[in-house]
């Protein structure tokens, strides 16, 4: 996968490094990617797959 560089405020990066280590991520990059993906997926709720999921979830047996 091709990679791109993103600039971060130094203070923030130190924090990221600290919490990545604390929560057991193998690298700060992994932690950042994880956070971003989490945020994006919450914004993508109108997605049709999410919609399908929601419709099926009306079924009492699943959540």
């Amino acid at each position: 996968m091709a990679k791109v560089k993103v600039k971060l405020d130094k203070g923030l990066f130190e924090k990221v490094k600290k919490f990545a280590e604390l929560s057991g991520y193998s690298s700060p990059e992994e932690f950042i990617a994880h956070c971003l993906e989490k945020e994006i997926s919450s914004l993508e709720e109108a997605d049709s797959e999410e919609e399908m999921k929601k419709k099926l979830k009306g079924l009492g047996y699943i959540s």
Binding site: K54, K55, L56, K57, G58, L59, G60
Partner: peptide, 10 residues
Amino acid sequence: TPDVTGSYGI
């Protein structure tokens, strides 16, 4: 039978 949203019930 679904509800009007087409789901099993929301």
